[in-house]
Design a protein around this nucleic acid. Structure first.
Lengths: 266, 266
DNA sequence: TCTGTTGTTTCACGATATGGAATATAGTAT
DNA sequence: ATACTATATTCCATATCGTGAAACAACAGA
């Protein structure tokens, strides 16, 4: 019936007695870079909710400034309060706070931009980014979600998944962002095996043409891969010869952060 | 009874039929830079909610990754999903998108950091920031809330308030952040009158020692002050002699943005 | 003017959120 | 060890609060 693409109302059956909250949050999550503005009816349909219910929830979110309305179109947009809360979330993130000095050193040492990323659903989320000391590289990606299969950090995080979880992910087609993006499931599987073995991932022009990145996993006390860090920059600067030494730096930094998290190798 | 400071559950009576959502959002807003982690009981008490209710709401927020728990203390913290949503909110903010090129020009022209800020409750919220071309100035303040009475942008926004709204604000004591912070209500009132007349606000060492900023209002189609922009930097560089010319630049840039919003002077 | 679409309000119903009480799980002092 | 205190978590009967159909209002296009 719904012709508009469906938003998943979170298959994971939620806590009992939180329907309204879960629905409100699902509505919030419907907003994205691709669709930053929603009309009430469309959003109601996409979320599979009654129009009245949607209206009431959106009104509550608007009253709290988490949403705002476009005065011209009447459409809903994410509000300023979310920028504030997001900023607080960023600054209070313990992983970010721990990693920052290491990232700064890594960026200086490598002369490239360094990032800290975690997995959120089937994307990697940029938690922190230290700009390259070399000018240009102004990516400003903090808070951005990137496709997990086309990034070095993403591959590191994917490599840590169980075969079952991986199979589920690979069941759906992988979008190609560039000519180089790995879209063949078997090809990606082999790549991930390599990543798992070597403890480093590369992405050469797979996210965007001319951009190369090297990533390594951050491991916590329970030996779970909780994040990945990377250095990245123009492929012209991150030449094939430099990659091994960059990989070593990234791995070293990642191990340093892991140790702070209580991870002890062996 | 409640010895912990109370969180205001939003005096403005909310939309009927959204109690749970409003409460959940109030819980989210309880997290701040000053108090980034809450124990269940404390938060329940501060929000004036039953412990069970609080637990259920927090669980729902945690399930959606808007909150996470500190594995050591068991305390609640803002989660990564909020960083993602906050990033989306920032990038999709129309005011920010409009202002950015103007801000970039302003930063180049002045050689200082330029910011765009809006009012949210009794704070100013930094929506965008273009770092100074001169090194140092690395403030990284986007998403940060600053006290409205101690910032140039804040004064601009305060100056636009009605006398009644202002009186309400001035009823409570103004915290001093530095020696220079204006804490006397009458003194601030006079300052705001000046700002209203001249259309520019200054803050010299009022937010932090040695930091000076100049701000001007951004006005929309309905002649409402919706934001303020500023340039700021070390007081040693923003000398008394430079301030008039900087003020002119900021005002020019603000007028440019206002015009894009449909404001037409006269 | 009519018609289709949007956003908004109303309201009766019952599913759903609520909070007291009971239980579990620590952490601290005795 | 044991009792004690302060947490977090589960259970469950109750009625409050969220729900969605329907009706209304405000447009835009034909």
């Amino acid at each position: 019936m719904a012709s508009v693409q469906e938003i998943d109302l979170h298959a994971t059956e939620v806590y009992p007695g939180t329907q309204a909250v879960a629905r409100a949050l699902a509505l919030l999550k419907a907003f994205s870079d691709a669709q930053p503005e929603w009309a009430l009816s469309d959003l109601a349909q996409a979320a599979g909710l009654n129009k009245t219910t949607t209206f009431r929830l959106l009104s509550a979110l608007e009253a709290e400034r988490l949403l705002m309305r476009n005065p011209l179109s009447g459409g809903y947009r994410l509000g300023v309060e979310l920028i504030a809360i997001g900023g607080t979330a960023m600054r209070s993130n313990p992983l970010r706070a721990m990693s920052r000095p290491v990232l700064v050193t890594l960026a200086e040492q490598s002369g490239e931009a360094a990032t800290l990323e975690v997995q959120v659903e089937n994307c990697v989320l940029v938690i922190d980014e230290i700009a390259s000391s070399n000018p240009m590289g102004m990516t400003q990606d903090v808070g951005n979600r990137l496709p997990i299969h086309a990034t070095a950090t993403g591959k590191v995080l994917l490599a840590a998944r169980t075969d079952a979880a991986l199979a589920g992910f690979l069941a759906e087609p992988l979008p190609a962002l560039t000519e180089q993006t790995i879209v063949d499931p078997d090809c990606l599987r082999r790549e991930l095996a390599r990543v798992r073995q070597e403890g480093v991932a590369l992405a050469v022009g797979e996210l965007e043409p001319g951009f190369t990145a090297v990533a390594a996993p951050v491991v916590d006390r329970e030996r779970a891969v909780v994040a990945a860090i990377s250095v990245g920059g123009p492929s012209l600067r991150l030449t094939r010869e430099r990659l091994p030494s960059l990989a070593a730096m990234v791995q070293m930094a990642a191990r340093q952060i892991s140790r702070q998290l209580g991870y002890w190798p062996g």
